[in-house]
C-alpha cells in the first residue's frame, strides 16, 4: 500500500504575462505553482486546499499533462509524464482521469449521455470492443447511481448533482488508477454534495482508486482525505495526515484558514477565536521575498523576508511545515463521532 503512484518533484509552472499584439513582449511571469513536491500513494486520497489563486487548479492541469511544467517533474510510477509521447502517453491518459468543478460546463451540451460516457472507449478503442460499449456505458451509469435507461438524454436534462455523476462515470470508464478531482462538489447543493462525496468514497473502496482531491472547502477535504496539503501563493506551506493538519497545524496560514471556517454549531460561536488576516493575497506576478505569507503573518520577523522557509519537519512538530516559527496550536477542537 505504500507504493508511490505519483511523485511530484519541485514542480514549477509560470505563465508569461505579455504586452502588445503583433510584437509580444514578456513583461513578467505569473508564478502559479512555484516549487511543489509531494507524492501520492496507491489507494489514498490527498487533499489539496488553498484559497483562490494559490495554484491548486494549475497543479491539477499539470498533473493531467494538460500543461507542460516550466521546471520540475511529475512522475507516474517513475516515468516523467511530460516526456511521454504516442502510445505511452495514451496509456498514461487511461490511468489518470479528471473530474471537473462545474457540472454545467464540463459536459458537451450537444452530446447524449451515452456518447459522453462512451467517448473514452472511442478514444481508447482497445479498452472495450465496439459491441460491448453500450453495455459498459449502462453499467457505468448504474454504478454512479443514474438510470441506465437515460443514455439518450442530454446533459441539460439533468440536475447539477446528476451531471457531476455523469462526469464521474466518464472518468471511471477507463478504470484509471488515479482521479484528479478539481473542486468536484463545490458547485453542488448541500444535500447533493453529500451524495456525491459518498459516491466518491464508495468508488474508491470498490476500485482501489487514488484521489488527488483539490478543494477550497476544508470540511469537505477533511472528510475525504487521508493526507492534506495546504497551498498558499504557489507554494506548499504544510503537508501531513488529516489529523496532523486539522488537529495540530503548525503553519500560521493553516491556522488562520482553519479558524475562519464556520462550524455549523451556534453554541461554538462565542468561544471561537478567529485569527484575522489583514490585507489581500499578494499578486503571484511579484510575490513577496522570503516567506510568501509574511505580508499577512502576525509572526513575521526579519528572517521571514530574507530566507525562504523550507517545507520540512521542524522541532516540536511531527509533519513538514514551511514556517521559520512553526508551532503547534489547536484551532478546532475535534471530537470523535
Amino acid at each position: 500500500m505504500t507504493e508511490n503512484i505519483i511523485e511530484v518533484r519541485d514542480l514549477v509552472k509560470h505563465y508569461p504575462v505579455t504586452r502588445g499584439v503583433v510584437f509580444k513582449k514578456t513583461v513578467g511571469h505569473v508564478k502559479a505553482v512555484d516549487g511543489v513536491s509531494f507524492e501520492l500513494k496507491a489507494g489514498e486520497t490527498l487533499g489539496v486546499v488553498g484559497e483562490s489563486g494559490c495554484g491548486k487548479s494549475t497543479l491539477a492541469r499539470v498533473l493531467m499533462n494538460l500543461e507542460a511544467p516550466t521546471a520540475g517533474q511529475v512522475l507516474y510510477k517513475g516515468q516523467d509524464i511530460s516526456k511521454l509521447r504516442g502510445g505511452a502517453l495514451r496509456r498514461l491518459r487511461r490511468q489518470i482521469q479528471l473530474v471537473m468543478q462545474d457540472p454545467y460546463t464540463s459536459l458537451n451540451p450537444r452530446m447524449t449521455v451515452g456518447d459522453l460516457i462512451g467517448e473514452p472507449f472511442e478514444i481508447h478503442p482497445d479498452v472495450a470492443p465496439r459491441g460491448s460499449r453500450r453495455a459498459k456505458v449502462q453499467e457505468l451509469l448504474d454504478l454512479v447511481g443514474l438510470n441506465p435507461e437515460h443514455i439518450n438524454r442530454y446533459p441539460h436534462q439533468f440536475s447539477g448533482g446528476q451531471r457531476q455523476r455523469i462526469g464521474i462515470a466518464r472518468a471511471l470508464a477507463l478504470r484509471p488508477e488515479v482521479i484528479v478531482c478539481d473542486e468536484p462538489v463545490s458547485a453542488l447543493d448541500v444535500s447533493i454534495q453529500a451524495q456525491v462525496m459518498n459516491l466518491l468514497e464508495k468508488l474508491q473502496a470498490e476500485f482501489g482508486l487514488s484521489y488527488v482531491f483539490i478543494a477550497h472547502d476544508l470540511s469537505v477535504v477533511r472528510h475525504l482525505s487521508d493526507r492534506v496539503a495546504v497551498m498558499y501563493l504557489g507554494k506548499m506551506v504544510e503537508i501531513g495526515t488529516e489529523d496532523e493538519i486539522y488537529e495540530r497545524p503548525t503553519h500560521p496560514y493553516t491556522q488562520a484558514l482553519l479558524s475562519a471556517v464556520p462550524v455549523p454549531d451556534p453554541t461554538l460561536r462565542d468561544n471561537k477565536a478567529i485569527i484575522r488576516l489583514t490585507g489581500d493575497v499578494p499578486s503571484p506576478i511579484s510575490p513577496p521575498s522570503g516567506c510568501r505569507f509574511r505580508t499577512r503573518c502576525w509572526k513575521a520577523q526579519d528572517v521571514c523576508a530574507q530566507e525562504v522557509p523550507l517545507l520540512e519537519i521542524r522541532r516540536g512538530s511531527d509533519h513538514p511545515s514551511a514556517c521559520h516559527f512553526a508551532e503547534q496550536r489547536e484551532i478546532v477542537p475535534t471530537h470523535e463521532v
Binding site: 493531467m64 494538460l66 502517453l89 495514451r90 491518459r93 487511461r94 482521469q97 479528471l98 471537473m100 468543478q101 462545474d102 460546463t105 464540463s106 459536459l107 458537451n108 451540451p109 467517448e119 473514452p120 472511442e122 478514444i123 481508447h124 462526469g167 466518464r170
Partner: peptide, 16 residues
C-alpha cells in the same frame, strides 16, 4: 470551455 479541456484530458486528438 471545460468540456474541451475534459476531452483533452481523456486523450482526444485534435481531429476529434
Amino acid at each position: 470551455a471545460d468540456y474541451i479541456v475534459a476531452a483533452r484530458a481523456l486523450g482526444a486528438g485534435t481531429g476529434r
